[in-house]
Design a binder for these strands. Structure first.
Lengths: 194, 194
DNA sequence: ATAGTTTCTTACCATAGGTCAATTTTTTTC
DNA sequence: GAAAAAAATTGACCTATGGTAAGAAACTAT
């Protein structure tokens, strides 16, 4: 599949473009492959790009001053990933992005993004709606962290993201849920035994 | 101050509008006053509007199945508030919005919002950026919840939102931090004594 | 001001989840 | 497919925070 076809049929599936617009789109994105275990981004680096995940699995994580890792976001097929706080502010990353399963990504720079917004308001609309959904899901997660037990959050996670669960290690899940791997292990045992 | 002047000079401060656009803007917003202790929104209700806070203080909170309250968001002057998950999806509220200090609000419906976006792409841009900042701050909060102790989160809160702290009760802050009022009380004691 | 209500604090015990260390299981690599 | 490395589990113990209950302090309204 050509980059152009992929862009039109998968990433912006649902939107229609003129020939001119297709060219602009294709020029703005770049395809890349990333092997498992590699780092797409390190804390401290400038963040100029965001990435669309066509294939594979990645995670964004923060390393606290005490050295502990906290997974902020996973991304699988059809999700976008970056250190968005840094991306939006054109500042340096606070987080790392690690490839968990061999991935194919389409990257676009913030500058090209702004160009696209300018030429195609429908893209601004597309990304605003994407932001709205992300906002809603973050809010849901905050509520979950405030109101649920670790066990409830785990069940919720594997029900909501069965496709992610298959791709990641338990310690990734634990660091996403805000518990230790030992606690997660005990929770899983508990659930099996009833 | 007229509604129009207020809209132009405070809410959308920084943007410039034609006469036509000003009219459209003014028609879309409605001013309202809300007394302390009243509910702007109850869980279960349909959410058609979002609100700009010109004056006062409000909070959005979720009541968990066990009856406990969890504060998701505060809003003071120049913030927007709604049950955004419900607002974006045109679904029913999961949360309550309570007025904590007598408030003056400007409300706008989702429909009128869409109209404005359509006629003025710069507004879509304005709100996309607003969403980006909200996204970043939610992410920051998730990281804080995952990586910090209750005491650290409290210090962080009073440093980051000194203007909010003045307006709210300790139990509001506790429910925002995800701890009990007793724990917050112990933390405050600890901080005073050293 | 005084009574009533709401909010905050304190004390004591309970518990979810963390820590450390050892062991088993699974995955990777040659 | 054997050895090495990584991940998951388990047990014993610990700690931060929760639950309950009572009293103190701070507002509110007459």
């Amino acid at each position: 599949m050509t980059l152009e076809t992929e862009l039109i049929t998968t990433i912006f599936n649902g939107l229609s473009f003129t020939l001119e617009e297709r060219k602009l789109l294709t020029r703005s994105f770049e395809k890349l492959h990333l092997p498992k275990h590699s780092l797409l981004l390190k804390a401290g680096e400038a963040v100029y790009e965001q990435y669309y995940v066509a294939e594979g699995c990645l995670r964004t994580y923060y390393i606290a001053p005490d050295g502990k890792e906290h997974t902020v976001q996973f991304a699988i097929t059809d999700w976008w990933i970056s250190d968005y706080t840094a991306f939006f502010n054109s500042s340096n990353a606070l987080m790392h992005i690690e490839c968990i399963q061999d991935a194919t990504l389409y990257k676009i720079s913030k500058n090209d993004m702004e160009q696209l917004y300018h030429h195609m308001p429908k893209l601004e609309s597309y990304f605003r709606k994407k932001m709205e959904r992300a906002f809603a899901s973050f809010q849901k997660r905050i509520i979950a962290n405030l109101s649920q037990t670790a066990s409830e959050r785990y069940l919720n996670f594997i029900n909501t993201y069965p496709n992610i669960e298959q791709n990641v290690k338990n310690y990734h899940i634990a660091s996403y849920l805000g518990i230790t791997t030992q606690s997660l292990s005990r929770i899983r045992k508990e659930l099996v035994q009833g």
